[in-house]
Nucleic acid binder design. Structure first.
Lengths: 122, 122
DNA sequence: TCAATTTTGATAAGGCATTATCATTATCTT
DNA sequence: AAGATAATGATAATGCCTTATCAAAATTGA
């Protein structure tokens, strides 16, 4: 992956300008709004290399295939709309989570997901 | 599914006596400790019918296939050990989660997962 | 511009978890 | 106990997501 192509450019822009984690299919749709000629294989290929470069970060939600967002964001969590299925980034983080683990357990990280209706679907 | 079989009995007991959500493979292993002759197909079949009956509840964690626990438990969350990959039930629940969502969003539920090392692996 | 080489798109193939198939075995009713 | 029928186990098939294949197209350097 060395040459500059309109497809990769469109994919990077789509992900960076979205304010939320995108599924590969969402990346494809948004990238196609910029460049008509793009296939899903190129999306997967580009995501894979951007992950390896450290430009992207995978976002896993329960029961869902991974989505992707730009790496380097501050610590945050996500909200998933039960209607449109979009995932949004949310601010803030609960405190004292480490106290929830049983004695003897070492807590190293956590994930929080809120569910409900987004502003557009409510 | 009407007849009583030793397989179904073993599967129900394995899940009910485990103090943590089990994957289908874990269910198989624990059920085999009770009854030698059990296949994975029977595990999936039984889990499916117990879910339909409302006896079981699916537990989805990010990036993981579903695990299963007895239904009817009080609200709780989970801890996943990064070494043995077992999932444990934990008590407690952060407050004020609804305030984390953006204006206009309706929060209906949430999931929290802690990661780290369990007592056995630490 | 042109040849060399990488990248792409369409789609076949792969991986993994789950489900269907079906002959055999177990359960239930009489 | 015996027949009727449901359940089981082994494994093939499915489904979904992701990756590999490869001819065609695009990019790069001369």
């Amino acid at each position: 992956m060395e040459r500059k192509t309109v497809q990769r450019q469109a994919i990077r822009e789509a992900i960076e300008e979205a304010s939320r984690p995108l599924s590969p299919q969402e990346v494809l749709d948004l990238a196609r709004a910029r460049v008509k000629r793009i296939g899903i294989a190129t999306v997967y290929r580009t995501i894979k290399s951007l992950l390896a470069e450290g430009v992207l970060k995978a976002v896993d939600l329960p029961g869902e295939p991974p989505r992707y967002e730009p790496a380097g964001k501050h610590h945050h969590h996500h909200f998933r709309c039960r209607t449109c299925n979009k995932v949004y980034e949310i601010e803030g983080c609960p405190k004292d989570l480490k106290r929830m683990a049983p004695r003897g357990f070492r807590v190293e990280g956590h994930d929080l997901v809120l569910y409900g209706l987004c502003a557009g679907c409510a």
